[in-house]
Simulated assay, not measured.
Amino acid sequence: MPAERIVCLSAESAEILALLGQASRVAGLTAFAPRLAALEGKPRISGFSTAKLDRILALDPDLVIGYSDVQADLAAALIRAGCNVLVTTQRTLSGIFETIGLLGGIVDARPGASSLNARLEQEISRVRQQAARLPVRPRVWFEEWMDPLISGVGWVDELIEIAGGEPLFPELRGRWRAQDRVVDPAEAARRNPQLILASWCGRRVRVRQIASRPGWDFTEAVRSGRIVEIRSHHILQPGPSAILEGLPRLHAAIADAARHISEGGVG
């Protein structure tokens, strides 16, 4: 029997259930869940890495959905308290599609999951076709965190390529833990990004802080003023929003940079 009282500790699980027309099954959710009409009024009972066990248990969930090893301790505590717990670990586009299929099966909404995945595939195809017409493919530094510098997670690099860019550290794509994607600021500058995209995990990006790093004033991106913030809820949650909201924003920034580069412009 499908779960009826689901607590979503990950933003993307709440988003997926809402887009599948299954928001009525959501008993509670993370504060970082998208502000969708279908989720309005649902109690927001956790952060991402923080939550109070008693607030979750008070909702009497028959399933709790979390994300990644960051929530491992919380998941263990919930299991000891007798909860059914599902923790997903998708870090690639294929993983996002698989997670949608998995959640669709759990709530008996497989046709809806297939339709949602088809919609996401269509958006990827649309942007890929637009990107194919760009005059150049800019070198893109995606900054997930500022101190230490952390390069973008797997699905972000994939989306940058689809949007028409070339990730600055493609060799780090398969490293799932953030601490394994830490880069030397001097090496990032040496690779000379032509566009900097920054998304600081919920914090507002400080453009001047990026531009004033030692040696970064010589990069094409800084010299031309091509530093763009992509809000975290659009790109760093591994669910539909990364494709429906994040991908068009990536492409807009990359296409603008490509046009200026092809015209020989710096600044």
Results as ranks from 00 to 15, higher is better:
residue 149 L to E: 05
residue 184 D to L: 07
residue 103 L to M: 03
residue 217 D to Q: 14
residue 204 R to E: 11
residue 122 Q to I: 03
residue 61 P to V: 10
residue 176 W to L: 06
residue 131 A to P: 09
residue 204 R to L: 12
residue 134 L to Q: 04
residue 131 A to M: 07
residue 143 E to V: 05
residue 69 D to P: 00
residue 61 P to G: 09
residue 95 G to F: 11
residue 138 P to T: 00
residue 86 L to E: 06
residue 89 T to V: 08
residue 164 G to R: 00
residue 196 I to N: 03
residue 230 I to S: 01
residue 245 E to K: 10
residue 223 R to T: 02
residue 45 I to L: 12
residue 215 G to L: 04
residue 45 I to T: 04
residue 3 A to Y: 15
residue 249 R to L: 14
residue 145 W to I: 04
residue 100 I to G: 05
residue 110 R to P: 05
residue 170 P to I: 00
residue 22 Q to R: 15
residue 72 A to P: 07
residue 155 W to P: 01
residue 83 C to G: 12
residue 142 F to D: 04
residue 215 G to V: 04
residue 180 D to S: 11
residue 238 P to F: 08
residue 41 G to C: 11
residue 31 A to C: 09
residue 105 G to R: 07
residue 97 F to L: 15
residue 42 K to R: 15
residue 119 R to N: 10
residue 13 S to T: 09
residue 70 V to G: 00
residue 187 E to M: 08
residue 111 P to W: 09
residue 85 V to T: 08
residue 130 Q to I: 08
residue 211 A to C: 08
residue 209 Q to E: 14
residue 243 I to E: 00
residue 43 P to E: 02
residue 141 W to Q: 04
residue 60 D to V: 03
residue 66 G to P: 05
residue 262 S to A: 15
residue 40 E to L: 03
residue 232 S to Y: 15
residue 44 R to P: 05
residue 52 K to W: 05
residue 148 P to S: 07
residue 188 A to M: 09
residue 94 S to Q: 14
residue 164 G to S: 01
residue 126 R to K: 13
residue 193 P to C: 10
residue 155 W to K: 02
residue 60 D to W: 03
residue 147 D to Y: 03
residue 119 R to P: 03
residue 243 I to D: 01
